[in-house]
Amino acid sequence: MSRIKKRITGLQISFMVILFEIGSTPLFLLGADARQDSWLAMSVGAVAGFALLSLFLWIQRLMPEMELAEMLHFGFGRITGTFFGGIYACYFAYQSMRNLRDFGELTSLTLLESTPMSITMLVFILVAVYAIWKGGEIIFRLPEILLPGLLLCYFLLIILFILMRHVSFARLAPVAENGFRPILQAALPEILSFPFGQMIVFLLLWRLWEKPGVPVKQTVWAYIGVSVFLIFMNALNIAILGPVLAGSFYLPFLQSVRILSSLRFIERLDILVTIMIYIGLFIKMLIWYFCAVETAASLTGTSSKRWVLPIGALIYGASFIERNFTQHMAIGLGPSTQIDTVFQIFIPLLLGLAAAIRGRSRSAPK
């Protein structure tokens, strides 16, 4: 059973789904290998992600009052379940570390070029430590405050792009010029893993809902809405920069916004975008961190607060392992994607099947 009081509303869950999925995703051109069809690759990834979301919801409905570590115990037994639980705690901490490093690199590239990354990341992780120490109820209040402002900023930027006539959707043509194979290769597993497969974290968050059962409607509608938004943002980057130019930048959305520098009455809009990305990165880092803490606490049967500082220190220290931003991006879009496939697809599939079999065997008449 959950160690946290169930005070999370359906609206808070919907907002968290949207903000968590947005994260830093619009900053990059996902599926760039598909060139002008990258938005189609994003669409394929969203559809595949919805199938994966359905799997996660099914698992949660099989075990509605359990969190992930308890599910693993139920499905695989105590020894194997504890092993997988420990691996998941490390995986969650690793993902949190990646977002923390993204924050440090982005700060160095845009706002505080002379400030050491170690300082900016330390401030970031300390804020997260405070939020997690206060508990899940506080964490779920953040999207209610941050999401409306974030969406308003995106809306204003899109309007500015259109008014300044920088958007040409003709750059999205020809559609599927080389067939659907490059689109599928760009979408799977890269886009499926990031951002859509990361919904795995909600196997630790849905149980906090204030009502009995699983918030299926709130989650599904939020997922559909944010998927449409991310597909549009991917298409927008292509429509502004073109497939070749957009694919040549690490952060094409920032480059797109810098085009608006021709506006005489607004300068340095890239700072606004950076702040918007900070919001998404913070929520993602915070949720991964929270899940690592909760999993470790569940496995050891101890208070979550005992794990906040040790795991926070681990995340901060590990963020310096990668030598530079190029290596960070190469790992994130390469080997990391293969690891994601194991934790987001294979283990949940096995867990769902094992839980269904064990559930039937327990309910069968003796």
Score class of each variant (00 low, 15 high):
160 L>S: 11
359 G>A: 07
218 Q>F: 06
365 P>A: 10
295 T>I: 05
46 A>G: 10
78 R>A: 06
217 K>G: 11
30 L>E: 09
242 G>V: 01
97 M>C: 07
269 L>R: 01
161 F>Y: 03
355 A>E: 01
273 V>N: 09
100 L>H: 08
150 L>V: 06
30 L>D: 06
327 Q>R: 08
13 I>P: 02
34 A>F: 04
240 I>W: 03
359 G>D: 02
143 P>M: 06
131 A>D: 12
237 N>M: 15
320 F>L: 07
316 Y>E: 08
232 F>Q: 03
319 S>C: 08
266 I>D: 10
168 S>P: 03
152 L>A: 15
91 Y>D: 02
129 V>Q: 10
240 I>Y: 07
312 G>F: 01
219 T>L: 05
82 T>A: 14
295 T>K: 07
90 C>M: 11
196 F>L: 04
175 V>A: 10
359 G>E: 05
64 P>T: 08
252 P>K: 12
83 F>R: 02
256 S>K: 04
65 E>I: 00
334 G>F: 00
135 G>R: 07
142 L>T: 11
139 I>M: 14
203 L>P: 01
197 G>Y: 01
32 A>V: 04
192 L>P: 00
216 V>H: 06
289 Y>T: 11
112 L>G: 09
296 A>T: 15
246 A>T: 10
64 P>H: 12
245 L>G: 00
233 M>T: 06
304 S>F: 13
156 L>V: 08
145 I>P: 06
67 E>D: 15
331 I>N: 14
344 Q>Y: 06
161 F>G: 05
39 W>E: 12
293 V>P: 09
252 P>Q: 12
76 F>M: 00
260 L>N: 13
190 E>I: 02
289 Y>L: 08
145 I>D: 01
124 F>V: 02
5 K>S: 13
105 E>M: 06
358 R>N: 08
184 L>A: 14
321 I>H: 00
217 K>N: 13
15 F>C: 09
47 V>M: 13
275 I>Q: 09
356 A>P: 00
336 S>C: 12
226 V>L: 08
234 N>V: 03
121 M>N: 11
195 P>V: 01
181 R>E: 14
304 S>N: 15
329 M>Y: 12
169 F>H: 07
366 K>P: 14
262 S>N: 13
88 Y>V: 01
295 T>N: 11
172 L>K: 09
330 A>H: 12
120 T>W: 05
8 I>S: 02
86 G>T: 01
247 G>P: 04
187 A>D: 04
176 A>C: 03
221 W>M: 14
104 G>A: 05
124 F>E: 13
340 D>H: 14
31 G>N: 04
